[in-house]
Amino acid sequence: MFEMTDESKYALNVHDLTVAYDFKPVLWDIHLQVPEGVLMAIVGPNGAGKSTLIKAILGIQKKIAGTVEIFGKPYEKMRKEVAYVPQKGTVDWDFPTTAFDVVKMGTYGELGWFRRPSKKQKIAALEALEKVGMLPFKNRQISQLSGGQQQRIFLARALVQNASIYIMDEPFQGVDATTEIAIINILKELRSSGKTLVVVHHDLQTIPEYFDWVTFLNVKKIATGPIKEIFNDENLAKTYGINYKVTINK
């Protein structure tokens, strides 16, 4: 009883998550509690298990142990509350489909088997496209889009889901400066409207500017919390293993 109400206040609650493959431990005993309404970055060196963490949370990657709860309930029951934005590079962009089609895919979870996207879903998709500035490109074949445009489409697809939690894997990788700014503004807007955002991020320099929470990860969770408290040299050193000095440009 006591546990339930305490834990359900967290948007995302990960307990004892452990993943190992190919005889190597990749994620160990991860405890991660993310409160509602934060814009959080997950950082760590290459091979730290950041993508794996995301995939394990979403049930895409098999885990050896651990539980994942969304607002106090098991993840499998709460899929509709979570929107995933995978890494751009995992997809074949020569696939025959348009930007509009990709965004419409975001409505499939809500539709369930056998139903087709109706006017309502199409309008939602168009609105999402507008939001990310891709409406003029809606009928463009995705292979003709630039890296930044592709990333926007992925974001639009997630927006359509109307979820409470967004989980994104390196959304700023390989993206032009304008797109980066556009995306982070959308994310901040989402945060202001009460959404929770978990973002795997590769660029330490921009963290204080973009995010309000951070989680340091390197196979184990090193630290998590508000930027002011957690984003410091000590944690950086623990995570990256060297004397990392970060000047925070205000």
Partner: peptide, 11 residues
Amino acid sequence: LFDSDYAKSIG
């Protein structure tokens, strides 16, 4: 076909 990870994530 297009994005199997995403597909899994929406169930």
